[in-house]
Amino acid sequence: MATTIQTQLKLRPSGDRRADQRGDGAPANKMTARGVAVFYGAKQALKGIDLDIPENRVLALIGPSGCGKSTFLRCLNRMNDTIDGCRVEGRIALDGEDVYGKTIDAVQLRARVGMVFQKPNPFPKSIYDNIAYGPRIHGLASGRDELDEVVQTSLKRAGLWAEVKDRLREPGTSLSGGQQQRLCIARAIAVSPEVILMDEPCSALDPIATAHIEELIDELRANYTIVIVTHNMQQAARVSQRTAFFHLGEMVECDDTEDIFTNPRDERTQGYITGRYG
């Protein structure tokens, strides 16, 4: 049962996994969700989700299609605001501050909680302008040199610098799919967010590009809190430290990734990770 995934876990290259999870004690929670319910018109998509998002960790959200993972993810930076008829109840806090409260502006929140989407969506502008856009509108860089610096570090952190440093003026859309997705990650990083949300970032990519992104996510963990939605359980096992399993609008189980895949407490989780349904 679930042998392939367990093999994956053992074969993971980074040996510091266990230390991450247990060695330094329980990390602080960057974001917390309490009783989050989401309605699209009359239809309820999420039914009272309680979930903690630990700082500088990767949290994977898994579950069958239509279970509400993406909906939950989009609540975290209020991207659901743009959908007509969408209503959010409950409390989501970022560093203890209610993101749906009066003190936080949605624009400010999205600068602090960045997002990478399923399909790479670079702006139809140059690679440079794709990265520089966020810092420009938020006033994060004063002057040309500082902006160049931000672009360079963002591209370096996204592991794209070496490939594009000679073609920064070319359109971002001229890159390959995997490169475009890394460009989007670099664009999110450039705004210096605290949390990065990733909605199935590899579903449109080939295995090599996927491996690239997964390595990148592992590196980014040191500086950012990451929440990733994925349909690929091997991916969840490879990149995340904690995993939450969603089913039919409920959060069934959330635990350390290794425990979820080796010793799930709920039979629905077990059924899903062993491929019985989903």
Binding site: N77, T82, F123, Y133
Partner: peptide
Amino acid sequence: VPPSIREAALGIGASPLQTVLHHVLPL
């Protein structure tokens, strides 16, 4: 104009007006 462009702009914290003026309207 594909909604993904709007999402991309909103996702890095552009205000709705900036999203329209910088990205949607030029496209």
